[in-house]
Design a protein around this nucleic acid. Sequence first.
RNA 1: GGGCGAGUGGCGGAACUGGUAGACGCGCUGGACUUAAAAUCCAGUGACCUUAUACGUCGUGCGGGUUCGAUUCCCGCCUUGCCCACCA
Length: 971
Amino acid sequence: MKKYDYKKIEKKWQKIWEQEEPFKAEDRPSSRLRPAGQSKKEKFYCLIEFPYPSGAGLHVGHVRSQAALDVMARKARMEGKNVLYPIGWDAFGLPTENYAIKTGIHPIEATKQNVKIFKKQIKSLGISFDWSREINTTEPEYYKWTQWIFLQLYKHGLAYKKAMPINWCSSCKIGLANEEVVNGACERCGTKAERRHIKQWMLKITDEKYVDRLIEDLETVDYLPQIKTQQINWIGRSYGAEIKFEIQNSKLEIKVYTTRPDTIFGATYMVLAPEHELVETITTEAQRAAVHEYQEQARHKSDLERTELSKEKTGVFTGAYVINPATNKPIPIWIADYVLANYGTGAIMAVPAHDERDFEFAKKFELPIKEVIVKKFGEFKPEGDRRDAVAAVIKREDKVLVLYNKQFDVYRLPSGGYEKGETAEETIAREIVEETGYNDFQILDYLGMIESNNYIPEKKVQRQKFHKGFLVSLNSEAKTKTEFEEHEDYEERWYTEKEAIEKLASYGGGEEEFVKRTFNPQTKCFDGSIGTVVNSEFLDGLNVEEAIQAMNKWLEDKGIGKATKSYKLRDWIFSRQHYWGEPIPIVFCAKCGEVPVPEDQLPVKLPMVKKYEPTDTGESPLASIDSWVKVECPKCGGPARRETDTMPNWAGSSWYFMRYLDPKNDQEFASQEKLKYWLPVDLYNGGMEHTTLHLLYSRFWNKFLYDIGVVPVSEPYQKRVSHGMILAPDGEKMSKSRGNVINPDEVVAEYGADVLRTYEMFIGPYDQAVAWDTNGIKGVKRFLDKVWYFGEEVTRNKEVGAGNKELGTRNKELGTGELGKIGSELQKTIIKVTKDIDLMHFNTAVSTLMTFMNEVGESGCNKEMFRTFLVLLAPFAPHIAEEINERLGFDKRIWETSWPKVDAAKILVEKIVLPVMINGKVREKIEIEPDLDEAEIKKIVLKSDKVQKYLDGKEPKKIIFVKGKMLSIVV
RNA sequence: GGGCGAGUGGCGGAACUGGUAGACGCGCUGGACUUAAAAUCCAGUGACCUUAUACGUCGUGCGGGUUCGAUUCCCGCCUUGCCCACCA
């Protein structure tokens, strides 16, 4: 018997695929391929994120997603779809530029080499890409259109230049991208990153025309739910109001953004971000030095430090005041770095009574705290030492367990008598107030169950009915049940409920601690409808919801504010001071200002340079090439200079999926006809880490192109899925420095591409992170060896199943034919594999194929059936499947074969083993004919000795029969 | 602190809509073949009880609930992963 020589076989088929190009997508399916009278082929555009051709070569993670979509693509083709599965190179980027700086090899050259390596590696895997559509973002024919799209954005006012704070390394003299800042320091030299303001190109992704649609249109697409929520959270829309505050003794005003305009009467001071533009103007002479010092400190803090030091609030008084428009009273203006310059308006009205951060700040700087929201029942005034207070009350039937504890926490149960429209929480609160007059407490937690053995040491009554209850804290120290339980020294005592309530009622109070106690950092009184407005004139008595409405109306009527929205999403910084990126097609003319390069002069090609290091000024290396920078102004012909910034690598990847449709077109980025046929992408796979950047950016570009009428769909990707990471065998991320990288080339060399592909599909759930298992791959190798082995047998004997012990076929009598047991198993395998691939449950699809092979080992099978199996296997292991198919003597290639259809008639209806449950436990398994009806089955079951034994002469109370599943008897 | 997930044998993981938990693979144990090893093939493999079988008991992070029946549904808790994080 010939050994399975995967090296030879895989090379052979890869060559055939290269020559015959069976995976080429048809732009318009030819009528030749269409059976007469049938509609044209359905298109299926499946896409992986095109790789960045790094020097490190292909990663096993690349293989996972490429192989997965290859399975989808190959199956879809066999189902008669016109499949587009393209590949290209996202080749602009920093690593290549750094490599060029180090070695002097031109990025174009380095990219070429890397692409060559990647291509060879990918081809060795036998992925069914349509190589005729290969693209590369660094080729002028490609980036011409990236620049063209930029110009359209510019013309529509969505690209603008603005001074932005960037991370700056004073040693390398270069602006750092966020990804180049590691722990607040420059990735290369370790110097602490500083903030610097540099004029940058920005794309207006937050434009009102787009930002809401980026949220709302998610409803029209089929993305994994986590992807949708992550995008929504990233955009971070909130509804609030913008309110103008007039500066005392001045005509200037400061706008603040708040989500809680209803708390304006509680705004006792204002805080500006240190970078706020009005700080300089309003600061009084007396405060100027202190303010400057604070600003200077803030400037040198990296984002990281600013958040790290967040425990302790810092800030400085400016000496100025604004008038609170609601109270007409002056309130001081402070600056503090807990207010961010680039969110909202960079200024807040501080309401210390109801915002944790404001509260902290007010405490530290002794600013007034004015409460404007109270909880309906809360006005407790505690006094004295309450160390011996009741900690918990647990009700069981008519008894109440009272726990004593230092912390004054209480378990409280509703005693019934809900009032109309009341929540359970409100009922508890009302009851406590009514019954005890004890009204400073907070309900920490709703408890489904409050009684358990933990609280009943005697364990006298274990299986009681349990009550629902609430954890009520009479003191804010314990905020959760766990904290409560962890308190030492609580005593337990049993009381009647009445006694317990009396006990509670015996604690009095004073007024002093009022504000501190009513402020609840946990709920902040900010969660909607919890409180009632007080101390707020015309808002008094309203609940939060109503107060917001009323306040918004009042603001608008008075003309001092309006309801508005705010977003966490910021505009997209689109400039990079690097060489290896698309030049931004703008020139600066002394006379005409910013002038876009005329479209017919595109592409603006990257000039050849010798040095790639950034310049001392922080400009792109392009700035030092006079011959390239100096141009004539396209408008007036006068002297002008080119923009020397380049685009980030998100640019080329924002639209590449369209270029695949028409990669050679030099008139348009893609023809309308082709765009209309192929878009949207039906299935798009990519890493979760791209959810908030690449995926959002490209949706934005697509929407823009849709709006200007050059793209036919408003959402580019119909379905988005994500693969989990492949971790090293040690469970850590694979990295060069750890030395735990698995190289796909080595796996291919040792086991073959089919084994690698199938193993990666089998390794675990596709969307989950899994660790590479060097042993696990052996199992897949054994499986494919077995397939080969049986394939050889079938070739020789036409049928496996001669009772050959060596082959493992023993049960000849089971029948090797289509209508026998194995035929039935094959049908079940078709059903399961088809469904699993559709759901991208590749691991269970492979296990089903394995099970079938085991079954063939038991029962044997004939040639036709073996071929059907090969078709099911082919998406995973295409080379071996084609080879065996050819050896079996079939003329048709597997890729020319239709995906198998299920023939339900061939599924054997076997005897069913019916489990019989008695009192919830499986006690007997009875073999029955499948077509028996319920009454007959019951009769048979009750006759069984075992069942009789369990019945023990008693009559069954109840018999539940679930057809085809089980029979359950209750005695 | 916020958002989204996840917890099942020695390990990776299966399990439809609540219906025999542990498919498939790894590993391990025993056997066959071999001078031997590797490879391959056969058998076994959740824990406990038992000489063994049978009977039985326990078992899907923990504590409860609903149900004839819960990995699945409900309540609470714990642990853990990822992303975001002073967002007013």
